[in-house]
Design a protein around this nucleic acid. Structure first.
Lengths: 148, 148
DNA sequence: GACGGTATGTCAGGATGCTGACATGAGTCA
DNA sequence: TGACTCATGTCAGCATCCTGACATACCGTC
């Protein structure tokens, strides 16, 4: 089949490249997280909690790009497995602040190392200046898209 | 607050930013395509066909990041709506080369303009050099992730 | 104190996409 | 030629996630 010719027009589209890169990264992360019995959302939830303890279900959902409903079922399984804790009763409002347990921190440590390995591979041939350029350009994309 | 175990700093993590930017772009594209009655996969399929006529179902699936099965049902609806054509019998092998109809090209024209508008907004504050840097860096990410 | 607006957690119902599997056709190599 | 490998189109079954909805709790203004 005629698949030795790459798509030339699409290859120059930043939007398409963004999708390609994001998909490649997600696939690579899934590959290293699967042996650990974790999904990307599972890992992202623990990572978020490590950096910002006490986040609510809805805040975790926004940070991991899923709905509140999906995060709710994930949190219940994480709680059942003893990786996170949530108070029975809300201290204020309805939000239940979530925190990592020692077991959760242990599991996160392994997963974080694996994910860092993927990220390092992605940036292997870039020096510090290139990495700063990449993050800076991506940030500008996000800001520009946010404003309607 | 210093942490014992270094975790990934999400705010400056290229991987996380890649996800954020990709999600923001997808959301923005969905917003402009919804009034046209199209999904991103729907649009991407037409765009791919415009640039590379005669692609098979499987090739379209790979190019739009869905499975062959999902692309198959989409192609059937596109065919039913008269936007694409596929031969009844394969000329060789099993692949059925798909082509845009005039109606498909018309619909694509509107959608392509809308999507280009989104991309322009994303890159609004970047000059040509910045855009080249962005695409170049993204390409290097993809290449680095591809090799196991 | 009452009210509207906003945010949260939670409960079904349904749409979307994927995994697994099968038969078929083409290319490869002994 | 025959066995093997790979890719393709298609079918069924299932998992996943989202849309819609509701009750509740805070916060602002009046």
């Amino acid at each position: 089949m005629s698949q030795e010719r790459p798509t030339i027009e699409l290859a120059t589209s930043p939007g398409y490249l963004l999708k390609v890169a994001s998909t490649a990264l997600r696939t690579a992360m899934e590959e290293v997280l699967r042996p650990l019995g974790m999904t990307i959302t599972h890992y992202s939830c623990l990572e978020l909690l490590a950096q910002r303890p006490g986040l609510s279900n809805s805040e975790l959902a926004r940070g991991t790009f899923v709905t509140r409903q999906s995060m709710n079922v994930l949190l219940q399984s994480l709680q059942r497995d003893g990786l996170v804790t949530r108070p029975e009763q809300p201290a204020s409002g309805r939000a239940l602040p979530t925190e990592l347990t020692a077991a959760g921190r242990r599991q996160l440590a392994g997963a974080s190392a694996a994910v860092r390995g993927v990220e390092d591979r992605m940036l292997a041939d870039m020096d510090a200046a290139d990495r700063r350029r990449l993050t800076g350009l991506l940030e500008r994309c996000v800001v520009a898209l946010r404003q309607e």
